[in-house]
Design a protein around this nucleic acid. Structure first.
Lengths: 349, 349
DNA sequence: GAATAAATTTGAACCGGTTTAAATTCAATA
DNA sequence: TATTGAATTTAAACCGGTTCAAATTTATTC
């Protein structure tokens, strides 16, 4: 139904090659012809078919983003960053969710390859399976960037510096005079949780506070996990912690709820710090101090890296690993700030 | 670099047409040939080029979703619903953000048309401009579904039933014995805000409670807007409301903060209800009663409608308008529930 | 075994662009 | 005016699939 390059050529009395030249601002087409053809293009509101273009150029101008779940604010903010860079380069973005399902990850990667997207940004499922598809991408020299480490795979990677983020958070608690700091870990599969534990330990040792195995508690990633971890900590026979560093904000909020229900005041009795800062933190009545992941920045950096990789498609460039710095958002639950006004607690936007 | 249908044909000693037949399970290709060719396809891990396919079939298998900002949980959940239906139909989804910028909306729609997406789901910017692009889509019989009303345009539409949602919320407050219910409106441009006001009024009249103009306050959509509206309500010389129905959850949370800062207890002194239920609500210490928009459901319905429209592309089917029911999530701030455990406050997932 | 019908395969055109070698037009020079 | 060279245009091939009328193979019937 829409006009084709042939229709325009006929109307202008030139060949299709010439129209193509006009569209791509080729210097070989004369000014006169350019103007004449352009006028006709405008008049008929002709838009070249990008599918045909993609076929001819072997380049779709589309990138794929595969995450676990876009409705997770961490990923949707990331997607925003990806889109920003896409926009600047006239790319479009196909977003897919693996929903933490291995089969879907496989299927999606295959479909996106069939669609000949120019590159992929992947938050891969970790552990549990052999990531054959990712290895295949590498074999085929298909441009892609990972958003999480995959043991045994050396590829372009962008992620947050968990260890340093955790180190900062723990140090902050130590500087506030806390001595018995618990760490509530994330889900078993998360490598990030291990790295954060490392940063936590590093901070302790830096401040000469002895590490206590009992202060490490299994958590998870949901409100419930934090709530349960909180109850568990309270019911212990040993020294109750005077500070808790949690795997993420949900866990922190759940834990705080358990604590306040049992009469422990936050931050007066116990300081709490979370991780991610995906939005809820600043909305709480006692706003949550947390380690912010600059998700948008991660998305931007990953996309820039991917575009570079696409440019150097056949060249052998060794994998690039980019660590993004976290930001400690000091709010109220750590005890460093007094209760403030709304404005102070809300991120600027 | 990847194999083409020609390569496979050569390897199998058949014509390209036959390989095509095999790929599409054409009944005319013999069982024997099918198996032989299929074996070769598998062996070489051949995947047909969907770009070429799209060109030949005049169908990309890609839908476009244009919203204001995917990082808004309302839209990202909606996207999840869209993706679900896409998935079931082997479609992919290009997500773009207008960032509430008219020019971007125009550009994006044009780019997606050039890419020959099979259809569009659009949350259009309202008021302010003449939506020429949307009208053009209609003229061109390009399949699309709107997620918000556009005055003067009759097109497929899916949205939440604001009026009934608002009616339910207000009725709930009235049933709890509240008499002086304030309504904090949304941004000026939002038609939804007007519809909610209508539902609010309807409930009042249904319960024979007189409508009081002073109970309608200008709000907005951010925490600040609610906070300010809250302060304003408190500093009035007239009867202070014993309940407030807010345009959205952010506004409600801001308002609650203003109230508690000034010694008003929620829900003891004042009941509060929000709108949207985009996730924060259940995380609050005093969890927020709110009118949930089933965003995912909206996404699903919109996509189903769009796919139907695509099927009947040339036929003239009159526009379909689908209203999705809201759900009143009764939590604590309305005063109907006692403080409960974590589990009761968290949506099942 | 020949004629006929049915099943299967294929060549060639097509989708709508880009690309490049060859053809044409134009202007400058002898 | 004829020659030459530069500027411009174009025909035809190509990208990798699908489609369908026509050709070929296979099966059936007499």
């Amino acid at each position: 139904m829409p006009m084709t390059i042939g229709d325009i050529a006929k109307l202008a009395g030139v060949s299709r090659a010439t129209v193509s030249g006009v569209l791509n601002n080729s210097p070989t087409v004369s000014k006169k012809t350019h103007e004449r053809v352009m006028a006709i293009i405008k008049e008929h509101n002709y838009r070249p078919n990008e599918v045909a273009r993609a076929l001819a150029l072997n380049k779709t101008g589309i990138l794929g983003l595969l995450v676990k779940d876009v409705s997770n604010p961490l990923y949707s903010k990331l997607a925003l960053g990806v889109e920003e860079i896409c926009d600047e380069n006239e790319y479009n973005l196909i977003i897919s969710n693996s929903h933490v399902d291995w089969e879907r990850q496989v299927k999606t990667i295959n479909l996106l390859k069939r669609r000949r997207v120019d590159g992929l940004i992947i938050f891969p499922l970790q552990k549990g399976h052999d990531p054959v598809q990712i290895k295949d991408l590498q074999k085929d020299k298909f441009p892609f960037v990972l958003l999480a480490e995959l043991p045994g795979i050396e590829a372009d990677l962008v992620r947050v510096d968990d260890e340093s983020g955790s180190y900062q958070a723990t140090s902050h608690l130590l500087k506030l005079g806390r001595k018995h700091i618990a760490y509530i870990s994330g889900p078993d599969l998360a490598l990030a949780s291990e790295r954060r534990l490392k940063g936590y330990k590093k901070a302790l040792s830096h401040y000469d506070v002895p590490f206590d195995e009992k202060m490490i508690r299994k958590g998870g990633w949901r409100l419930d996990d934090g709530y349960n971890a909180g109850l568990e900590l309270l019911s212990c026979d040993f020294q109750c912690p005077d500070a808790v560093f949690c795997y993420n904000d949900s866990v922190a909020i759940g834990l705080i709820r358990a604590f306040t229900e049992r009469g422990k005041r936050v931050p007066e009795d116990v300081s709490v710090i979370g991780f991610d800062d995906t939005g809820v933190a600043s909305y709480l009545e006692t706003s949550l101090t947390t380690v912010a992941q600059p998700a948008k920045e991660i998305g931007r950096k990953a996309t820039e890296l991917l575009l570079k990789r696409i440019k150097n498609r056949n060249k052998t460039v060794k994998p690039h690993k980019i660590l993004i710095n976290t930001h400690l958002m000091v709010r109220e639950t750590c005890g460093a700030n007094l209760k403030g006004s709304v404005k102070a607690q809300v991120p600027i936007d």
